[in-house]
């Protein structure tokens, strides 16, 4: 039973950053703005999180710095794509490329290294985990006894975002802007305001996901490892989940479970199975994702006006 709990906890830990970034994608694309900058935003906030935590010797300050840079990058994306109706893919690629260059630059400037930052206070240390010891002996639920705040945040925000999108006026407006901005405008919705809000909110979600990478279970920023494609996996999870919060959650969990399964298989392989090269195990989650898409999920249809810049008639 302990092993099962451990596996579930590991899965949740692994899924949290992907899920958070994926939720960011969901809210941004619901309003019709494609955000392939998730990867870049995660890198930015992972680094700024570590930086803030190092400066203030407090992980909460780090998280705030991460969210702060998320707002800045989100505003940049919104300025290009909403204010100037720029191409959303182009803007997203710009953020991703800049993040690669600029973070290495900062890493060298601030921590005098190009690889790893020094260790900083983080949320994964024993004292900072959210302890629910009374659960620890119960199967399955026991997995929830010692999780980081990010796992809880990812679960709560999934529900919160679902409520926001499908049970509030604001959510209806966000979705209407993503489906048909012209119609929304005629009904008196301020399309630009809604898009600005959704893009920045989405970026903040992704930023929390990025902070989860560097301040969650690790305590430092690793220049090659952090993000390392997780933002793109989040993008895939968002499409996989058909642009809905709970869909994104299932997709992130599926991917994370495959990842944990891969670890366990690789660790427990005996006999012939241990002869299988590690590459096959590592590639397993990606095979399973494609398999799940072919077998179960099938065609995904996004918001109708997703990716189309909105310009007012003049």
């Amino acid at each position: 039973m302990q092993l099962l709990n451990l596996a579930i906890a590991m899965m949740l830990d692994f899924a949290a950053p992907i899920l958070l970034a994926s939720l960011g994608g969901v809210i941004s694309e619901s309003s019709g703005v494609v955000n392939i900058a998730l990867e870049g935003i995660m890198r930015f906030s992972a680094f700024f999180g570590v930086w803030g935590s190092a400066v203030a010797k407090n992980q909460w300050v780090g998280l705030l710095w991460g969210i702060g840079i998320g707002i800045v990058v989100g505003a940049f994306h919104a300025y290009i794509t909403v204010k100037w109706a720029g191409d959303q893919i182009v803007s997203g690629v710009a953020i991703n490329v800049v993040s690669l260059g600029i973070i290495t630059y900062f890493l060298e400037l601030i921590f005098k290294t190009t690889g790893y930052s020094p260790s900083v206070p983080y949320f994964g240390s024993a004292a900072n985990r959210i302890s629910l010891t009374f659960l620890s002996k119960i199967p399955v639920l026991g997995a929830f006894s010692r999780l980081t705040i990010f796992v809880w945040l990812s679960l709560l925000l999934t529900g919160g975002l679902h409520f926001l999108l499908y049970h509030t006026v604001l959510g209806l407006r966000i979705r209407s802007v993503g489906e048909n901005p012209t119609a929304a405008e005629t009904l008196g919705v301020n399309v630009f305001k809604i898009k600005w809000f959704a893009v920045i909110m989405g970026s903040v979600f992704a930023a929390i996901g990025g902070a989860a990478l560097s301040l969650g279970t690790m305590a430092s920023f690793n220049n090659t490892g952090v993000a390392g494609g997780k933002g793109f996996i989040a993008l895939a999870a968002m499409i996989f989940g058909k642009w809905t919060p709970f869909g994104a959650m299932l997709a992130a969990f599926l991917f994370a479970s495959a990842q944990v399964l891969q670890f366990i298989l690789q660790a427990t392989a005996r006999g012939i199975a241990s002869q299988i090269p590690s590459g096959f195990y590592s590639a397993l989650p990606y095979f399973l994702t494609i398999g799940a898409l072919v077998g179960v999920v099938g065609k995904a249809v996004g918001p109708a006006a997703d990716g189309i810049p909105y310009k007012k008639e003049s």
């Binding site: 940049f76 290009i80 794509t81 100037w84 720029g86 191409d87 182009v90 803007s91 690629v93 710009a94 953020i95 991703n96 490329v97 800049v98 993040s99 690669l100 260059g101 600029i102 290495t104 630059y105 890493l107 060298e108 190009t114």
Partner: peptide, 18 residues
């Protein structure tokens, strides 16, 4: 750092978007 040109590259793309 030698990744500096990547910053330029990203900025060019950003201005193309703009």
């Amino acid at each position: 750092p030698k990744t500096f040109p990547q910053i330029i590259e990203g900025l060019i793309v950003a201005f193309i978007a703009l």
